[in-house]
Design a protein around this nucleic acid. Structure first.
Lengths: 196, 196
DNA sequence: AAGAAACATCCTACTAGTAGGTAGAATAGG
DNA sequence: CCTATTCTACCTACTAGTAGGATGTTTCTT
């Protein structure tokens, strides 16, 4: 393996992630990545033969990072509320400093009907995985009486997922990064309120 | 004006709306519309010179329908809760029967950074308008003690907008149209609960 | 250790197909 | 006749993807 090889693939992956977050799957081209990484188009095809391969690699990487981070968080002894706060906090920072103004899975999720079959499957898999994590956290929070919500953890998971991705969308549509933070804070406040 | 003229423009507009909802702005082409309407590409350019013009027309039309419908609803004497229910019900039906699986403004909102300047402005304007309507409804609902929420109507508006658009996204990502209905019902239940 | 085969990376140059958009003629209806 | 509409035919720029060569890196063999 040439020393520069892995590094280049990583740069391509990151450029693709940024482009997908900002313009979507059909909104970017290999030429865009070539410019961002300062490499020729053909070299991108060497690392990721097709655009679908590239998108799948981005999703797989994104999911690996998510799984690793959440496992580490749990291993560190963080309770349900702390895990939720950490997750929201991550996105608050990413959106505020524009380093990741939208979840790559959310963007691809919106485009789902337009995606190649195998990319769409990877996106669906990401959401199922995320769903499971969130449901487990809510379940644990309910059991320990740390989080309070009417109905099941399953149904609250759907509410919270909608709220998170919708807040990203609304923040973008309104050109107001602070909107995400406000919605996130309010939803945590709601979940920690004994009444509801 | 030739009799078929307006009708054709309408068909193009509707085809464009469907394509934007399903594939996004960068996910459709004049060729797609030409096929859907059974017309030649050049004829579309006669009615809508550029793609941006077409997208703007779709947004303007969408907003007109929204304003008209909401004004009629209010004129019919519907209270805040009834207005909210009507709005949610509309989307529940559209998503369930796949006649409109995603709000056209939501799709364009997600793509906002990739849109031509003038299209982006029209989308932002739509969201400001929608925001105002929702805030007024919530304000009225709070005053009449029909709706209950912590915090201001402004902040609850942000929550609800996020929930609505996020539920569309989540329903699509999970391939589960029922998800929208569930989230919508739960959020109305939450707003009508005296406690919270 | 030296040399050769094998491989990985990146390049230039190209393909076929599609994008949005235009020019100008044919065809209508009032 | 005039104007709106639609068409065929075309343009340029860009799309994803390929062919094949240059350069360097490992690895295998002796």
């Amino acid at each position: 393996m040439t020393s520069s090889g892995e590094a280049t693939a990583g740069k391509i992956l990151e450029a693709a992630r940024q482009l997908i977050m900002r313009r979507g799957y059909s909104g970017f081209s290999y030429a865009d990545i070539a410019e961002a990484v300062d490499i020729r188009k053909a070299s991108i095809h060497h690392h990721f033969p097709t655009k679908a391969d590239l998108a799948i690699a981005v999703m797989k990487h994104h999911r690996e990072i998510f799984d690793t981070d959440m496992a580490a968080l749990q291993a560190s002894g963080a309770d349900a509320l702390a895990q939720l706060r950490a997750y929201f906090g991550h996105w608050e920072r990413c959106i505020a400093d524009d380093s990741a103004p939208f979840c790559v899975a959310g963007m691809l999720g919106a485009e789902l009907p337009a995606l190649p079959e195998d990319v769409a499957q990877e996106v669906s898999a990401y959401f199922r995985n995320f769903d499971k994590w969130l449901e487990d956290v809510l379940e644990e929070g309910a059991k320990s009486h740390q989080l309070h919500f009417k109905g099941t953890a399953k149904s609250e998971t759907k509410m919270l997922i909608s709220l998170i991705y919708g807040a990203m969308l609304a923040a973008r549509a309104h050109g107001d990064p602070g909107l995400f933070k406000e919605v996130a804070s309010n939803s945590i406040a709601q979940l920690t309120r004994a009444s509801s």
